[in-house]
Design a protein around this nucleic acid. Sequence first.
DNA 1: TTTT
DNA 2: TTTT
Lengths: 166, 166, 166, 166
Amino acid sequence: MSGSVNKVILVGNLGADPEARSFQNGGECVTMRIATSESWKDRATGERRERTEWHTVVVFAEGLVPVAKNYLRKGSKVYIEGKLQTRKWQDQAGNDRYSTEIVCQGFNAQLVLLDKRERDPGRDDYSGHAHDGRWSNSTPGGGAGGAAGTAGGSAFDAGLDDHVPF
Amino acid sequence: MSGSVNKVILVGNLGADPEARSFQNGGECVTMRIATSESWKDRATGERRERTEWHTVVVFAEGLVPVAKNYLRKGSKVYIEGKLQTRKWQDQAGNDRYSTEIVCQGFNAQLVLLDKRERDPGRDDYSGHAHDGRWSNSTPGGGAGGAAGTAGGSAFDAGLDDHVPF
Amino acid sequence: MSGSVNKVILVGNLGADPEARSFQNGGECVTMRIATSESWKDRATGERRERTEWHTVVVFAEGLVPVAKNYLRKGSKVYIEGKLQTRKWQDQAGNDRYSTEIVCQGFNAQLVLLDKRERDPGRDDYSGHAHDGRWSNSTPGGGAGGAAGTAGGSAFDAGLDDHVPF
Amino acid sequence: MSGSVNKVILVGNLGADPEARSFQNGGECVTMRIATSESWKDRATGERRERTEWHTVVVFAEGLVPVAKNYLRKGSKVYIEGKLQTRKWQDQAGNDRYSTEIVCQGFNAQLVLLDKRERDPGRDDYSGHAHDGRWSNSTPGGGAGGAAGTAGGSAFDAGLDDHVPF
DNA sequence: TTTT
DNA sequence: TTTT
């Protein structure tokens, strides 16, 4: 089924430091727990109530893994864009279990730091799109080589060619 | 924690007719299963592959329940906006289990039909926002009482015509 | 045309204090300028470049106007959800001009403060949905009257505990 | 300013066929006009009203240009994800003018056909992400090289099956 | 279980 | 200029 969209947008805080994990093939992912909450006034009692929701986010996107590892910490506020994915696994009794995670992988994954932390002025990799590490010399948005090319941001500056964002 | 966002956006197809359910207090919800899928070319074999993801959507928003009940069917394509919510329950063995659903409830819930189905020209309730049933005569966006109230859709109809921002 | 979506999501900083404006009928709106930016590495020179985009946001939603007036200031970081609207006006020479704004009005408008500012612990109105001021004692999402109504945040508190979908 | 998000999501119909445009350097873009609309019941008169908004969308993303050119036509319904960009230009009198467009360029751009049109079963390029043309044999999301790389869609195919987060 |  |  082309013609579908699967998108999650979260703004929340990390409940703990992110956990990195390596694969045999050299790949790497980072898992983190993000809290979002909503508050409301109870109709009956009039008192304010709050409900916190915990989300499991798994970052696979190459450009985003170092951002998560190097800059996110317990308490960090972050904007996350990913997709919903439900995984099937077996518990010790052999029963099927399901876990739903927000997966930041591939295009349309995004991760943006939202708090003013102490930053190293020599670094500029505090946020990123899915492929920042991988195609480091692509245009912003990766529209390399084409019209988007020269613009330095404006898609319409014509002559776009020498511009190669990122 | 104010300062958080919990949003899911799906465009997909219903795998089966929606299931309505009533509560003791007169309330009602509708549950449905939505499929989204992505396809890609396998790096190794070069063949096209596809993966389908199934989502459980629960509609509580008053204005959206009738839309889901009356117009959505198996196969319908729909745009859905809701929030992620994980529910804890006990299986027969008494073990804790968790289910994650997309909940369409309250503000910022949305449900839009995307296929051209046979429609009854006398009806105009084929899509809706969270409260369409409840404040049926409000302006678009429901900004009653103020400028928006008389605006009838244009934010600037109410004396803002001379407003020339930037 | 039902079956359409018009949504803008911004995370950015205010370039100046918000400007409030009243209408004859008692309504009120708040206008603000929000900066977003993207940065990339220039392909040719290898140096980092940045482009800032300025957005005009107009808040009409009743629940959001006080949030914008009371808590947003020059420099504030904010999450905004609204819709695109292009307004036609005449310049002094009588020529048609168009301005495009992000309008926060009605359902699906949202405004969330993202920086840790000095806060008054006695207040709890630092962010909001479109109608927070208006239906102040509604449940989160405002799904009053039904199952959601008593739910107090959890969609399943009202007799749904035994509900185990899928 | 890292730490910002500039995102537009539209579901609407094309008012006319898309217009392609080539650049000297071989690049190409496609411009199209998209209509979205909202309807509401007038408070005073009780009659149904409707307002249509027209959006100018410019597609630069390499993977999306052919989708727009080959499959979108006047009347097509489409899901679009891009960013807001305001362009400055001079009218004949030499006055500064501004135009705001939705730019589909780079990461996080997306374009999904939503109507069932006559399709050629031999083709599979009816929708796409920003770079589909460019990295045509990447995994879904393009997370090549790492765990995701071999995954073929499931983030957990590469040794993650035993991973049971939370 | 949908859709292409 | 689309669509319902």
